[in-house]
């Protein structure tokens, strides 16, 4: 791997980490959902700074090309992030359902009370 390529990878990982931190600072992203992204960025940065790790993992897994190790890891991270998003959506829709029901029940009570106080 040439020095330019490595520099490019390091910059890329730093950009990702910087972007996540910036979103966190702006409160656009909550800490809970940022953790997995930060972990992903950190691993990429470590790989970029010390490609030695990638070679070791490649040898352990018996793969041919080191970059495939990185792609495999990225695939894993993406799946994790996607599943965590599905979980988040499920939890949100459950909460949304409960709240919708509560609003409807409260609205009915208000209507009943208003009718009572009119008498």
């Amino acid at each position: 791997m040439s020095g330019v390529t490595q520099l490019f990878f390091i910059l890329g990982a730093l950009c990702l980490l910087g972007f996540i931190l910036w979103l966190l600072k702006k409160d656009t992203l909550s800490v809970k959902y940022s953790l997995i992204w930060l972990l992903c960025g950190a691993v990429l940065l470590v790989f970029a700074v010390c490609p030695y790790f990638v070679y070791v993992i490649r040898d352990i897994l018996g793969m041919e090309v080191p970059s495939n190790v990185v792609f495999l890891m990225l695939d894993g991270f993406e799946l994790l992030i996607l599943i965590s998003l599905s979980i988040a959506i499920s939890q949100l829709s459950e909460k949304n359902k409960r709240q919708t029901q509560s609003i409807a029940l409260l609205e009915e009570r208000v209507r009943r009370l208003e009718a009572q106080t009119k008498d």
Partner: peptide, 12 residues
């Protein structure tokens, strides 16, 4: 009656 402010489907 009660009126749901958003559609929840039959279960909700």
């Amino acid at each position: 009656h009660v009126t749901l402010p958003v559609n929840l489907g039959i279960g909700g």
